[in-house]
Simulated assay, not measured.
Amino acid sequence: MQDRNNTIAGWVLFAGIIALGSTLVVSEVFHAQEVESCSDDASDGYCPPYVKEASLAAGGEQEAEQPIAFFLASADATRGENVFKKCSACHTVTAGGANKVGPNLYDIMGADIAAKPGFAYSDTLAGLEGNWGWDNMSAWLQSPRGFAPGNKMTFAGLGNPQDRADVMLYLNTLGSGIAVPPPPAMDDAVADAEEASAEGELQLAQDSDTADDLTENAVEGTGSQGGVDVPDAN
């Protein structure tokens, strides 16, 4: 009886080892497929978020973001006002409004950096030159700590470029009114691809017209009775 129990226990242990091994093999296969699907050669373009994050953490490249002018072309000040609610606890936006935890932001677009009177800016921000143009403001809103390391603002930033464009357009309506940059010029490769696509569609249309003409001629025929020519029996 003891030998039988030992035999059963051995088979159970063996089955467990086989199951564990199979799980590891399957996991590696699917993991390899997921990593491959994140490559440039992937046909479906799918990349699981955790794989992408691991790739970025390991030094992988992140897709370049479009210039902010691209998002300004479709920006909406009303949406920007809603997004700005995240900032209203620390900033006022009315003319002559008081500074709070952060400075009053009325007429901020185009103004010099760290130039609002009566607000104690950090040395880091006060030492910067330039103004709050579209690019600078976008970079600041995206990551205040990245734009001016060591500044006092604790807000993590707006990662969505469309949100930043909307907020800036809203701020621009509040006493600023600086010119909105035009959308960036289309990339040459994209332009060439679209031109080739248009030429291909034109060629297909021309081929379709030719095919229709041939079909009409075949149906109408050229015989004296107007029907399809039929070869003589002779």
Rank of each mutant, 00 (worst) to 15 (best):
Y170G: 04
D3V: 09
S88E: 15
Q203R: 11
G221D: 11
G10C: 02
C38V: 05
A189E: 12
E216G: 00
C87V: 12
R164E: 10
I8F: 01
L169R: 13
L13Q: 02
D187F: 02
D163P: 02
A126E: 09
W134R: 02
D123S: 11
G80K: 14
L169I: 07
D166P: 09
G221H: 10
R145P: 01
K85Y: 08
D40S: 04
L20R: 02
D166T: 12
I18M: 14
L56C: 00
P184M: 08
C47A: 03
S138V: 00
A42G: 11
T7W: 07
G227P: 04
A75R: 06
E36V: 08
P183S: 09
C87F: 12
F119L: 08
Q142D: 04
E216M: 07
K152Y: 06
A233W: 10
F155V: 03
A73W: 03
N104C: 15
A218I: 07
Y121T: 03
G80S: 12
K116S: 11
V29Y: 09
G146D: 05
F155R: 06
D192L: 12
P183V: 09
E201G: 01
A211F: 13
P184H: 06
S37W: 01
M137H: 07
A95Q: 15
S138T: 05
R164D: 07
N234I: 13
S37K: 01
N234V: 13
S224H: 05
N82V: 12
P231K: 10
S88G: 04
V101A: 15
M186G: 02
D135V: 15
D163M: 08
S138H: 03
P161A: 03
I8P: 00
G177D: 10
M168W: 08
A233L: 14
L13W: 01
A148T: 02
Q62T: 10
N82C: 02
A32W: 01
D166K: 10
G226T: 11
D3A: 15
N99R: 08
K100M: 14
A111G: 08
R4I: 12
L105W: 05
Q33R: 15
E194I: 06
V26M: 04
D107S: 15
G127E: 09
Y50M: 13
V230K: 12
G45C: 13
G159S: 11
N104T: 14
A120F: 04
G159C: 00
L24Y: 09
C90L: 14
N151D: 06
L72A: 01
H31N: 13
F70T: 00
Q206C: 00
W132C: 04
A233K: 10
G150A: 08
E220Q: 11
E63W: 01
Y170N: 06
A120H: 06
A218K: 11
T78L: 12
A191N: 08
C87D: 11
L174N: 07
Q2P: 02
R79C: 00
T124C: 01
S224K: 09
E129K: 13
A120V: 14
Q62G: 06
A115E: 13
Q66R: 11
G110F: 10
N5Q: 06
A32Q: 09
D192V: 06
S197A: 15
T210D: 15
G59V: 04
Q2W: 03
A15R: 05
A115R: 09
Q142F: 03
G177F: 08
R164A: 10
D213R: 06
A189C: 00
E220T: 13
T23M: 10
T7V: 07
Q203K: 14
A95G: 03
